[in-house]
Amino acid sequence: MKELISTPLFGIMLSLIAFEIGCIINKKTRLPIFNPLFISIVLVIAFLNIFNINVADYDKGGQFIAFFLSPATVILAVPLYKKIELLKSHAVPIISGITVGSIVSIITIISLCKLFGLPKTINVSLIPKSITVPIGIEVSKQLGGITSITVAVIILTGIIGAIIGPYICKFFKIKDKVAIGVAIGTASHAVGTTKAIEMGEIEGAMSSLSIGIAGIITVIIAPIIAKIFNVLM
């Protein structure tokens, strides 16, 4: 048994089985709170703790999955390609919305961290919370953050966005499909985009677009905004 646990196959199989269970529960309940990714994370953590398995052993397989994370994100360009004409006709409001959303996200995080007196390393680790993991890790490194915290908060942000995003849009009576897709993609990256794709092809395409643009904008403006806040506060 120890020989199996110490191989990458263990981490890969545990992740796949946990995620499949999450998908089954999600399909059976039809409740957004039972997000497959959220369920799989809980199951993996519980399994490792119950059987007292070292995280390093699990991560041998986890690294293989993480390796495919960046190229897998590229597939999100497919729904965008199908709706390229829609993008061209709404280019200005779409890009403006993503830009404003990214800036507000960064300013909100920095302001709350300053308000609660959190250390600078925690502050900068939380700044990339709304962009996809590969870009977020690089932004965190650039700002001097802790990448493990960054990854955790990005995943948490995505799950929360996927769960409550549709309800927020419904509460504020946002019915435009382009606006819904841009909002979800900008706020909750790839995990949120999976929910946007379920909502419709236009929502999914706009959400996919938002991931890339929000990532680029955050890379450019995050260091600038962080420096401004450090000088003023």
Rank of each mutant, 00 (worst) to 15 (best):
Ser130Gly: 02
Ala196Met: 07
Gly158Glu: 02
Ile24Gly: 00
Phe116Asp: 04
Ile180Tyr: 00
Met206Asp: 03
Tyr81Thr: 10
Ile217Met: 05
Ser40Asn: 01
Ser15Tyr: 03
Ile17Leu: 08
Pro36Cys: 05
Gly97Ser: 02
Ala46His: 05
Glu20Lys: 15
Ile110Asn: 05
Leu4Asn: 12
Thr157Gly: 06
Gly192Val: 07
Val42Gly: 03
Ser148Cys: 06
Cys113Met: 15
Ser6Met: 15
Val191Ser: 08
Gln63Glu: 14
Ile216Gly: 07
Leu4Asp: 11
Asp176Ile: 09
Lys27Pro: 00
Ile149Leu: 13
Ala91Trp: 14
Ile110Cys: 07
Ser210Val: 07
Gly212His: 09
Glu201Phe: 00
Ser105Asn: 10
Glu85Ile: 11
Tyr167Lys: 11
Ala91Asn: 08
Glu201Trp: 00
Lys88Asp: 09
Pro79Phe: 10
Lys195Ala: 07
Gln63Ala: 13
Ile45Leu: 15
Ala152Thr: 14
Ser210Trp: 06
Ser207Met: 06
Lys60Leu: 14
Ile84Asp: 09
Ile168Glu: 04
Ala226Asn: 15
Ile33Cys: 11
Ile53Thr: 08
Cys23Val: 13
Ala72Tyr: 10
Ile106Phe: 01
Ile127Cys: 08
Ser105Gln: 07
Ser125Leu: 09
Asn26Gln: 14
Gly62Asp: 03
Gly215Arg: 02
Leu86His: 08
Gly200Thr: 03
Gly97Thr: 03
Val153Ala: 09
Ile149Tyr: 08
Phe67Glu: 12
Gly161Met: 03
Gly117Leu: 08
Val55Arg: 14
Val104Asp: 01
Lys175Tyr: 01
Pro93Asn: 05
Lys175Thr: 12
Gly61Asn: 01
Leu112Tyr: 12
Ile213Glu: 01
Gly161Pro: 05
Pro36Met: 05
Ile159Thr: 00
Ser111Tyr: 12
Glu201Arg: 00
Asn49His: 11
Ala179Gly: 06
Ile21Asp: 07
Thr157Phe: 04
Pro119Met: 05
Glu3Pro: 01
Ile159Gly: 00
Tyr81Glu: 09
Ser6Phe: 12
Val153Cys: 10
Phe51Leu: 12
Pro119Tyr: 00
Leu209Ile: 12
Asn26Glu: 14
Ile184Gly: 03
Ala190Gln: 01
Leu80Val: 04
Lys60Glu: 07
Cys169Ser: 14
Gly145Lys: 07
Tyr58Val: 04
Ala46Lys: 03
Pro93Val: 05
Ile168Gly: 07
Leu76Trp: 04
Thr150Ser: 13
Ala190Asn: 02
Ala77Gln: 07
Ile25Val: 14
Val42Met: 13
Ile137Met: 12
Pro166Lys: 04
Tyr167Ile: 12
Gly161Tyr: 04
Lys120Phe: 12
Asn49Leu: 14
Thr194Ile: 10
Leu37Gln: 10
Glu198Thr: 01
Asp176Arg: 08
Lys173Met: 05
Lys195Glu: 06
Leu16Cys: 15
Arg30Ser: 12
Leu9His: 11
Lys83Pro: 00
Met206Lys: 02
Leu80Met: 10
Ser6Pro: 07
Val74Gln: 04
Thr157Ile: 06
Glu85Ala: 12
Gly165Lys: 07
Pro32Leu: 05
Lys141Glu: 15
Asp176Trp: 09
